[in-house]
Write a protein that binds this DNA or RNA. Structure first.
Length: 316
DNA sequence: AAGTACACCAACCGCATGAGC
DNA sequence: CGCTCATGCGGTTGGTGTACT
């Protein structure tokens, strides 16, 4: 026995929204709000749409201050950082990017960012790269430094490539750790309720954005480099195991990492586990941890410093 | 020029959860 | 305490436009 449908599918219109429908929905909500009942809303305004569909349309397109497309490097970085710490919880990630919707971020991740990160270039990107290389060849006789110079992405040229392997190293490191393009620390933007939600959801110590806290593999056990409560030696991940220092309750840590292991399926290579070992922490770190871009990679120990948020949240 | 492949993204679907009764 | 219903969320699909062969 299946679940009862949320609306009568036979009498409900599906597919793309027309401008008239958009206008109806938008003007009604702007004047009256949703009334706390999405199911009843389409009937009230004479739309032959499912309530869920109305809600989605409003949240993703009609709501004020929605931005589409044109993700910045900074946004890329935030998305990646959050994805690494909490997985595919797009609504939470979206909450950190004003004007972005979870659907937008999800689409962006699935269609572009993932490829960018794992080195699979889209044809568009390949073309951009080829075009650039042609131009460079024509004008400069293929001078290497010309390409390297533009790789920063700061000149109006398309970045030399969107291939993550190149770009990660090319991403300019912001002057202030964890600073967004508007000059706010990301941590400052985190709504308290979201923090609580993250904690509740099992993100636990991950509830703090990793940007300011993560430490590159060059760390070799110096306590002075470790922010308070707990650390995780991810070298054990390479052995298929997980160990934690005593400061973090083992169960919680296990759950957190179980969650992340599941959710991060496909990100294995970030930890040197994947078949494609071409991605190294030194390449990832500038993107994930701009403040720690120093990473000289080869020492093997990937150290995440986890801040116990529970005290901050008044949960202890 | 036509057919095919690919990229992108809007929208749908179904599950999980919480609120209300 | 259990049921029902509405909402929110993440995964997936389908349509459309564009590039390639």
């Amino acid at each position: 026995m299946g679940r009862a449908p949320c609306c009568d599918k036979a009498s409900v219109k599906k597919g793309p929204w027309s401008p008239e429908e958009d206008a109806k929905l938008k003007s009604y909500i702007e004047q009256n709000g949703t009334g706390g009942n999405w199911i009843a809303l389409p009937q009230k305004i004479g739309l032959k749409r499912c309530g869920k569909s109305c809600r989605l349309r409003w949240l993703n397109y009609l709501r004020p201050n929605i931005r589409h497309g044109g993700f910045s490097e900074e946004e890329d970085r935030i998305i990646l950082s959050l994805y690494i710490s909490i997985g595919s919880r797009w609504s939470i990630i979206a909450a950190q990017l004003p004007g972005r919707t979870d659907n937008d971020i999800k689409n962006y991740w699935n269609t572009r960012l993932k490829k960018k990160l794992f080195g699979k270039q889209s044809r568009k990107d390949q073309r951009q790269q080829q075009q650039f290389m042609r131009q460079a060849t024509e004008s400069n006789g293929m001078k290497q430094e010309a390409a390297a110079g533009d790789a920063t992405g700061s000149s109006g040229m398309p970045a030399v490539t969107y291939n993550w392997h190149h770009q990660a190293m090319a991403v300019p490191v912001p002057p202030v750790p964890g600073t967004t393009m508007e000059g706010h620390r990301i941590g400052d933007e985190v709504d308290e309720s979201i923090r609580k939600l993250l904690y509740k959801l099992g993100a636990g110590p991950f509830a703090t954005l990793p940007l300011p806290q993560c430490t590159p593999p060059m760390y070799e056990g110096s306590p002075s480099l470790v922010p308070p409560s707990c650390t995780v030696d991810t070298t054990s991940l390479n052995e298929g195991g997980m160990q934690a220092s005593s400061a973090l309750p083992a169960l919680e840590l296990d759950q957190s990492f179980h969650f992340n292991q599941v959710k991060l399926d496909g990100l294995d290579c970030l930890f040197g586990m994947g078949a494609d070992q071409s991605l190294r922490w030194s390449e990832v770190s500038p993107l994930v941890c701009p403040n720690n871009a120093v990473a000289s990679s080869s020492q093997g120990m990937q150290q995440y410093c986890l801040v116990d948020e529970s005290a901050n949240l008044g949960m202890k």
